[in-house]
Amino acid sequence: MSVKEVVLNAVTALFVQFDPEAARDLLVPGYIQHNPMVPTGAEAILGVLPALKESGLTAQVHRVIAEGDLVVLHSTYDNAQAFGAKTQVAFDVFRVADGKVVEHWDNLQPLAGPNPSGRGMVDGAVEVTDLDRTAENKALVTRFVEDVLHGKAPQNIGNYISSESYHQHNPLIADGLEGLGAALKALADAGQVMRYDATHMIVAEGNFVFTASEGMFGETHTAFFDLFRVEDGKIVEHWDTLSEIPAQMAHENGKF
Rank of each mutant, 00 (worst) to 15 (best):
D175R: 14
D240V: 06
T142S: 15
T220V: 08
N159S: 09
A85M: 06
H150E: 15
F91Y: 03
V64L: 10
V101A: 14
G191M: 08
E146H: 15
Q33V: 15
V145A: 06
A198P: 01
V148D: 03
L149R: 10
A153I: 10
V96Q: 06
E21Y: 09
M121S: 03
G120R: 10
A90P: 00
N79H: 08
E103F: 06
T134Q: 04
A188F: 03
F208N: 06
G151Q: 07
K100Q: 11
K152E: 07
L14K: 11
A97V: 12
V16F: 07
D25Q: 15
H150F: 11
Q17Y: 12
V89P: 00
N207T: 10
N35L: 02
E5Y: 04
D232V: 07
S165L: 12
Y166R: 11
V203D: 00
D98C: 14
L73Y: 05
D132C: 09
D189I: 11
E252A: 10
A125L: 10
M216R: 09
V102F: 12
F256Y: 11
G158I: 12
M121N: 04
G158K: 15
N115I: 03
A80G: 13
D78M: 06
V89Q: 08
A22V: 14
T58D: 07
T129F: 07
V122K: 07
F217H: 11
L52Y: 00
A10G: 00
D189V: 15
